[in-house]
């Protein structure tokens, strides 16, 4: 599959810019004052030009890498991931990690 960062930018609803923190790879989102680990603090835009502008700005900030535009949903004022991939990035794998299967 083509990674989101390599796909043509299409915006059909609210989106955020996301990436991975340089030092540890943790999922981060582009907020008003820089990268944040909280989706609730992400800047949400709804058209391609605004998304592109946000992405360009984010890509200049080297604290995170692999920046791309990701869909979100706004439910009761809360920002939530817009697809399964983004839900997994935010919440982690959809199963218990192996340590819980251990001895």
């Amino acid at each position: 599959m083509t990674a989101p960062s390599q796909q043509k930018l299409k915006v059909h609803g609210p989106v955020v810019v996301t990436g991975n923190r340089l030092s540890d790879g943790a999922v981060v989102y582009r907020g008003a004052i820089g990268w944040t680990a909280r989706l609730s603090e992400a800047s949400v835009v709804s058209n391609a030009q605004a998304a592109k502008d946000l992405l360009v700005l984010a890509s200049k900030d080297d604290a995170a890498v692999g920046a791309y535009v990701a869909p979100v949903e706004i439910n009761n004022g809360q920002i939530e991931p817009g697809n399964l991939r983004e839900r997994i990035r935010l919440a982690g794998p959809t199963f218990d990690l192996p340590a819980s299967f251990g001895i």
Partner: peptide, 15 residues
């Protein structure tokens, strides 16, 4: 390319 030469990828949650 330098990290890839050492088996380091960037995946969904982390390196």
């Amino acid at each position: 390319p330098l990290r890839l030469m050492n088996g380091v990828y960037l995946q969904l949650h982390a390196y």
